[in-house]
Design a protein around this nucleic acid. Sequence first.
RNA 1: GCCAUGGUGGCGGAAUGGUAUACGCGCGCGACUCAAAAUCGCGUUCCCGUAAGGGAUUGAGGGUUCAAGUCCCUCCCAUGGCACCA
Length: 829
Amino acid sequence: MPRSYDPSTIESKWQKRWEDAGVYKTDLKKAKDPYYGMMMFPYPSGDRLHIGHWYSYAPADSYYRFMRMHGKDVFEPMGFDAFGLPAENHAVKTGVHPDASTRKNVDTMILQLKRMGCMFDWSRMVNTSTPEYYRWTQWLFLQMYSHKLCYHKEANVNFCPSCQTVLANEQAQDGTCERCGTTVVQKPLTQWFWKITQYAEKLLKNLDGLDWPEKTKTMQRNWIGRSEGVKFKEKIKDLNIEVEVFDTVPQTFLAQTFTVIAPEHSLVEKLIQGTSHEKPVQEFVEYIRKKKAGNRFNIQTDMEGIFTGRYIENPFGTGDLPIWIASYVVADYGTGIVNCSAHDERDFAFAKKYGIPLKLAMVPPDAELRAKVENFEVAYCKAPDGILIDPPELAGKTWHHARNEIIDYIEEEGFGTRTVHFRLRDWLVSRQRYWGAPIPIVYDPEGNPHPVPEEHLPWLLPTDVEFKPTGKSPLYYSKEFRERTEKIFGKGWTPEFDTMDTFVCSSFYYLMYLQSEGHGMKMESKKMKAESLVDPHMEKTWMPADCYVGGAEHACMHLIYARFVMMALKDFGFVSIEEPFKKVVHQGTITHKGAKMSKSRGNVVSPDAFVDRHGSDVFRMYLMFTGPYTDGGDWNDAGIKGIDRFVFRLFRLFEEKLEKGNKGDKGNKGLKGLPAATMSKLHATIKKVGDDIAQLHFNTALSALMSLLNELEKEETIPVDVGQTIAKLLAPLAPHLAEELWEMTGGTGFIIDQHWPAFDPKLLKSDTMTIVVQVNGKLRASMEVDAKASKEEIIAAAKEEENVKKYIAGGIKKEIYVQGKLVSFVAES
RNA sequence: GCCAUGGUGGCGGAAUGGUAUACGCGCGCGACUCAAAAUCGCGUUCCCGUAAGGGAUUGAGGGUUCAAGUCCCUCCCAUGGCACCA
């Protein structure tokens, strides 16, 4: 009796065998041809694995399996980004300690991940919330501290009133909290920052050499936002204050007639103190602050300002510039103060609105436009062919060409200096939350910060706390934490109560997978051996990760932080390279009913039922088959039947038609016993499946395999070596099924350890070819000809085709032959 | 508004300037069955035609070419990113 395909038996059978044999445990020290295949590790939420996890991990695993079959020593680790808000929110709601719920979630998730059948090497799993791990998160903090890349400052920070915590700029991009969508407010707090801006230039420059999606690189470039310009030093009249003003378009600096300053700027108070402008300005600033907090600010309709009563002192001999407060000025870009002229859309509109005088330093070549510009009817800005009229020394030059000369001129005259500015802000790493790595800092009785010495790491997260968000860090209420600090450092000393942003934890986990002592380090052991983060030999062997698959939503957060940390670690001397990820791939998003799946929308689809019914292989292949991997798509289970049938038929083919006896691995030699056309198809499929998987085009690889199956089903028997080749082609895409088929052919060992089959280029061509005939671009006939036929023979044959004759009866003007493809005639009209 | 990517059957989608609609879903007809499911066979872009064949067709409109889904121009639509950064 032939068996029929039963995924649950077959899949658990192979998962057990893999585990027993340790097939996916990589000996990191002995690897000859290392390949580090990473996927973004998940947050261990209480909900089960969702389709997004599957879509990210399973196809990535297929790709890495393909690499392994090409002889690579693939290391495919998995771990958990286990600190974070959800566990804490859960604790607030239920009283379950985040550590307990996280451990439980991790355990469930491991079981689910194992059912997926990926090549995860569980022996090197990491969990960022364990002391063994966060010891290193804290160590990283201390390194940043001792290398002066870490500083403490009171600053206005993005604060989410709902999460009761501060957010990094990256986490509050559109003025709302990345996590809960609440409008973020500005709040002054003393916080810890990491100087990512010190690496802005390098973060930007290195992008060019990375095999990352162009889109992601562009996003990072924009996020870093480098701009070159001039910095002017200027004095405020009647006050002994010097300010700096940044200008990226210095060509028209002599047209400047006023200056604007951001309402939130710290200088505002000094400008108005004790003057008649004090009260109205304060009212205005408060008014703008409220308006900005309420909703997003619209430049078109919300351009507003007020005069401060102060002036910039006569900088270039062009008269004093009145200082206005303007709603459109960004406080934390450049210096928050801008000199304005008629050659900027916003400045122009602002001046018009408030009747501020304007002048020109440049005019258009076109006379008609010039008249309008000179009348100040339109703003004339950033025009490459604009003609300068001021300064006289450079008059007549075009805006585009004069840039460098103008800057030289400005420097020579001593007005200002060349400067580069970045949009990138320093990374705010403090969080007023419980469930994170404690910041290893203590304060002496005078309130000065001191790093916690390394021997006290891990600086344990206390457990005697309340989780309720109060705006104050939960650690503030821990008695044990305070006592511990006083005991070690002395009376009156207090710990830092904030914890670190979870993006810190995930910024170096690619190195933690490689840690020589693995994750088994016992924390009670006083002699924690590893003195540095990663063994230099391991780091040299395995870094950078060859490929990193994960969501595009991390383009400006995780993927920029990880790069920064790696660069810093290199400068500290702990690693040898700057960039952690050689290649990055973003899987597309799986939506449902047109929207991103989310609990709040109630459109989350759980994969569990599908995996139960169809098996992990079918589910994985279905996800891969629906479309290009980087596109994602809308979830719809209607087509899963197609993959079910494919697997059913394939299995039946092996059960019923596989050549009996004569079993054993014949490698890829001597594929015999099939008609030439079928052989040709087989080899074309080997080529296509290989090419496609190499480019992560899983959908077309699968369709090629389906197409091959359609052919093979016409055969009476399938030779064993053909069966083995098919099993190998299937191995990356359907790992369990492929092992089973491999076993059926009498193959020895695991199929994942077999070498990817080679194709014979000679067999790709059959002995006949199909030539189509076009007349005037229209398809008129199709003919089978001998593959060796000459051009002349083919054209002659084409002319004899019945359906062609009638269209070329009037004569032929032109004959075109495309080798092996077509004949095209242009008929006399 | 700016930048990027895309728009192909009823649906997911395939196609180095060279047979558009592969592969799969769905659907129709038939076989098996008391029946249904499953399975198997045939068909399936649209229009005309019993057929042979003809015509139309890759968001719209132009262009280049013997030949355009593919290249160029204009426009429309969708998605993603950016958007007061001087």
